[in-house]
Design a protein around this nucleic acid. Structure first.
Length: 492
RNA sequence: GGCGGAGUAGCUCAGUUGGUUAGAGCAGCGGAAUCAUAAUCCGAAGGUCGGGAGUUCAAAUCUCUCCUCCGCUACCA
């Protein structure tokens, strides 16, 4: 069995969860379930990033301590993941003791390696923003009271690893996808890399992990957060578990945090002398088509709002099949409805109904037997290469192929007309219905990573108990379970 | 300004190393069927592949140039 370690970013709790968080997490969940489906053992990590200035500020605004703020935000994420049927293997919070301890271990280790040094930084500091700003920002005059501050801080020797990093990215030892993102990072790395300031004086920021060798400082939030990918599998605490998981097969990220993941994180790992993640995949954004939406509904709708009305699975299906690779996609009620009706209601749902009804009416609710194990459908099914699509992160392509297979089953029905054939040659009609049912069974299984619950309903309707992705598994004579429409049409 | 990506049918997108009449889904049009969620199936139509120039027997695919959109990055006397 092959291990597959997949992560989402840990989400920053200064804001409530939104479609961006949900999309990444559904994508990770889908990939994870697909990996399990093809025989890998997936370990899927997600969690929360809870330190740093913005969390401290958000807490102050609400009049609570940062710890309380985090504890009230965490359930919002966890509940959404439950609602979205996210099957994560571990959920880490950067305030977990298991995490903070390891971050401190690592700081000590990097410090002992000589990759951390103290230096004095002098720059313009905005009182209202509570951060250093650039010369240009000072000139803009938009940052209120500014003063020049001289501050001692700890720096990580990121620059030391620049050329090694470039080499690893170019050789795809660290694969950054899609390719445009790889180019972007390499472009960024053409300029000299500076060292990374990884501390904040407690005098201006308390909410963080204390630097173990200087109690006047806390750890910069990104340095802290990125470590979650190895603290969850117990780096420096349990070698056996750690070696089983690391390196990660893929870090799934949004395109906004490309640099932190493709530059900061790999150099940190190099300093620890650890292998780099195999792949960093940056996906695009969901844009909303405001014009259309404000016209028809008077407000902007998020795909998340559709869940209560249409169920989680159709929304998951829509999100997974409509976004291409690493590109942005536009969400609209109209495109959702079209996708739902044509793919799920008309092609798939209706096919389940027609097959089940024919079996019910002509074969006494029992799965007919076949007189030939193979058919054009089995051949077509065998040509679908799930792993190939997964390896290239082409979930949309895979779903299109499965849908195309399902459409071909409708064609198969039309060509063979079992509803007529049954009157002359019941055995042959049974054979046709068996193959159509088997096609639906494997289709439901192939769709199960995207639509776990709806797939179960389809399998139940067919009376399928065995979930093997092979042809000819349905047992003749087993009872089918005819139900109402699994995907009722959306009437506009 | 530099680097990178995108511009293909009304819409969303495929088009591998240049090679037969440029593909799919959806929408639209015409027909068939009536087992099924007024679902399905078949057929035709629809594109000067952003504009222009070039290389080649042959270019959506390579080169140059221009236009539009997006991303990253830098910045100015």
């Amino acid at each position: 069995m092959k291990k597959y370690y997949i992560t989402t970013p840990i989400y920053y709790v200064n804001d409530r969860p939104h479609i961006g968080h949900a999309y990444t997490t559904i994508l990770a969940d889908t990939l994870s379930r697909f990996r399990n489906l093809i025989g890998d053992t997936s370990f899927f990590l997600t969690g929360l990033d809870e330190h740093g200035l913005k969390v401290q500020q958000a807490a102050e605004k609400n009049g609570v301590t940062p710890a309380v703020h985090c504890d009230t935000m965490a359930p919002a994420f966890i509940e959404l993941w439950e609602k979205l049927n996210i099957n994560y293997s571990d959920f880490i919070r950067t305030t977990d003791k298991r995490h903070t301890k390891i971050v401190q271990n690592i700081l000590n280790q990097v410090y002992d390696n000589g990759d951390i040094y103290q230096d004095e930084y002098e720059g313009w500091y905005s009182i209202s923003e509570e951060r250093f700003i650039t010369e240009k920002e000072v000139e803009s005059g938009l940052f209120g009271e500014v003063k020049k501050i001289k501050e001692k801080n700890y720096f990580f020797k990121m620059s030391k690893y620049q050329s090694e990093l470039i080499e690893k990215i170019e050789s795809n030892e660290l694969s950054i996808q899609p390719k445009s993102r790889k180019n972007e990072v390499l472009g960024f790395l053409k300029n000299d890399l500076s060292d990374l300031c990884i501390s904040r004086p407690k005098a201006r920021l308390e909410w963080g992990i204390e630097i173990p060798f200087d109690k006047d400082y806390v750890t910069y939030v990104w340095f802290d957060a990125l470590i979650n990918y190895i603290s969850a599998p117990k780096y420096s605490e349990d070698n056996k578990i750690f070696d089983l998981h690391w390196p990660a097969d893929v870090h799934l990220i949004g395109k906004d945090i490309l640099t932190t993941h493709s530059v900061y994180w790999p150099t940190m790992l190099m300093s620890l002398n650890l292998p780099l993640p195999k792949t960093i995949f940056a996906h695009g954004w969901w844009l909303t088509d405001d014009k259309k939406m404000s016209k028809s509904l008077g407000n902007v709708i998020s795909p998340l709002m559709l869940i209560d009305e249409f169920g989680v699975d159709p929304v998951r299906y829509y999100l997974m099949s409509e976004m291409v690779l690493g590109l942005d996609a536009t969400f609209s009620m109209d495109s959702f409805t079209k996708k739902y009706n044509s793919d799920l209601a008309n092609d798939l749902g209706n096919l389940v109904s027609r097959v089940c009804t024919l079996i019910s009416n002509n074969f006494d609710d029992k799965m007919p037997s076949y007189n030939a194990k193979d058919s054009e459908l089995s051949e077509r099914f065998n040509s679908i290469n799930i792993k190939e699509h997964l390896d290239h992160f082409k979930i949309d392509g895979l779903l299109h192929e499965v849908m195309s297979f399902i459409r071909s089953v409708n064609g198969y029905m039309e060509k063979n007309q079992p509803w007529k054939l049954v009157k002359e040659d019941k055995e042959s009609a049974g054979n046709i219905l068996y193959h159509a049912s088997e096609a639906l069974r494997v289709s439901a299984i192939m769709l199960s990573p995207v639509m776990p619950e709806k797939s179960k309903e389809i399998l139940a309707a067919l009376g399928a108990k065995d979930l093997k992705l092979e042809w000819g598994i349905l047992k003749s004579g087993d009872k089918i379970l005819k139900t109402g429409p699994i995907f009722p049409r959306i009437i506009q």
